[in-house]
Amino acid sequence: MIALLLRDLKLAFRAGGGFGLGLAFFLIVTVMVPFSVGPQSALLSTIAPGVLWLGALLACLLSLDRLLALDWEDGSLDLLATAPLPLEAVVTIKALAHWITTGLPLVLAAPVLGVLLNLPVAGFSWLVVSLLVGTPALSVIGTFGAALTVGLKRGGLLLSLLVLPLYVPTLIFGAEAARRGAVGMDTGTPMLMLAGITAATVALLPFASAAVLRVNLR
């Protein structure tokens, strides 16, 4: 399992691996919001938590179609399915590798980009905490979507259509936790809901992903 994680991380950092792609997308989206909204710092600080969460979510989506498709194309997925590793472990490791190369950099970059959107000082810590708790769910749900669409030509677009609705609960509670933190309100309820969503998806979805992958490999 460690070997698979290390290989996926190595592939992400090598040429064409796509590391930093999501991060650059996140940066560009965040920079463009003030251009489109105009120089209204009060409005920007109101919408900052929501915009940052939406940007992080879309950046996460960007690298999902490569998650399993590349392994499918070169036959690695067939070989992994016949290896001693259970497919449930394979998809969990794949989701973890996706989170390390996409989710974690987004979490770390979010405070810097918060400055660009005039995020209130009180909101920085809650933004980081909510993203840290919420992004693993994005990776795990995304892996499920990737497993559903693996082997389809032009599956990337379908993947987005399938996965975005599934991201809604995470987005609602994540952005709400960050917003409440920014205006100094109690963040307990949305944070608990967000943590609950992440815990449930991490616990259950790998089994669903492995099951659809078995069907798709036939």
Binding site: G75, D78, T82, P84
Partner: peptide, 28 residues
Amino acid sequence: IAYAGHSDGIKPTLTVTENLTFWASVFG
């Protein structure tokens, strides 16, 4: 069973040694 299909399951950005070492550690 060790299966080898039409595709080789090779990652182009890894070296020959890295590709083989990966499969060796997956199979223990």
